[in-house]
Design a protein around this nucleic acid. Structure first.
Lengths: 139, 139
DNA sequence: AAATCAATTAACGTTTACGTAAAGTGCGTT
DNA sequence: AACGCACTTTACGTAAACGTTAATTGATTT
């Protein structure tokens, strides 16, 4: 059943926790282009994949314009040499940017971890105090 | 000289490539609070550190409200147990979120790398074609 | 047939994160 | 004294990314 042909708009909103407004907006922006059955939208597996890419890009703080650029890199078909070169450049730019974000994440995780341990220590101290009190009271 | 006491607003805008408007806006939002010498702002090393945290958070796609939350975790001083517990929970939430972003980045880097190689292959083919042509022409 | 339900289009509204004048202030230089 | 320059406050403007009604429209259930 994972091989189904089409997804309805509500199926996608349920799966990815987005609103119909969002999906229609992405369609206006030409990021998705579902087929139609009458007036109803039928999303293809390709649309679903693109939606995943969009949401992943958004989690990483890319604007929709940037997400569009990245997605366009994926389904490129430029045969001309100059265009291929410029594509390589843009790939390099995005790669550099992502590596920076990667460092940012590791730093932030490290710092949060430090805070976590210091808070844990504080909590342990509070617990010890209570326990000593209990002992003193003979309970 | 890295130990200077204060930074002027233009020094910070130069170092971090932000506008004065941005720094003043962050001050309005209570993310920075520089001292004053008359009407002029004097940013402390603490302000500079906070600015770094803000910009790093932004690169990772956090809103200023979220950045504020994260920063507040760093300079916490809540003695009460319930608050410490809730702080631990929030740290865990942010950690989970950052780990998701981490996976997102690795996936995207992997995909970009694949596109890069396939484009490189295409470029190599174009080069070979030209070279064979040269050989045929005896040059 | 009436009613309910999921989907549609159209259009104005909202939040975030600043941009962009406009008008003024203090201070070192000419 | 006049000037330029960096800095200031105040306040309206704006782009992005949807939210939120409103008014319809089939389709299906009763």
């Amino acid at each position: 059943m994972t091989d189904r042909r089409y997804y309805t708009i509500t199926e996608l909103t349920a799966e990815f926790a987005v609103t119909t407004r969002t999906l229609r907006f992405y369609e206006d922006e030409n990021l998705l282009n579902p087929e139609r059955q009458g007036r109803k939208r039928l999303y293809t597996p390709r649309d679903r994949t693109r939606l995943k890419l969009i949401l992943r890009g958004k989690r990483l703080g890319f604007s929709l314009a940037e997400v569009r650029e990245i997605i366009e890199m994926y389904d490129h078909a430029p045969g001309e040499k100059g265009q291929l070169q410029r594509l390589q450049d843009r790939i390099q730019d995005r790669t550099t940017e992502l590596e920076q974000k990667h460092r940012d994440i590791l730093e932030t995780l490290e710092e949060l971890n430090q805070v976590k341990w210091s808070v844990q220590k504080r909590l342990d101290e509070l617990d010890n105090k209570k326990n000593r009190k209990s002992e003193t009271l003979g309970r």
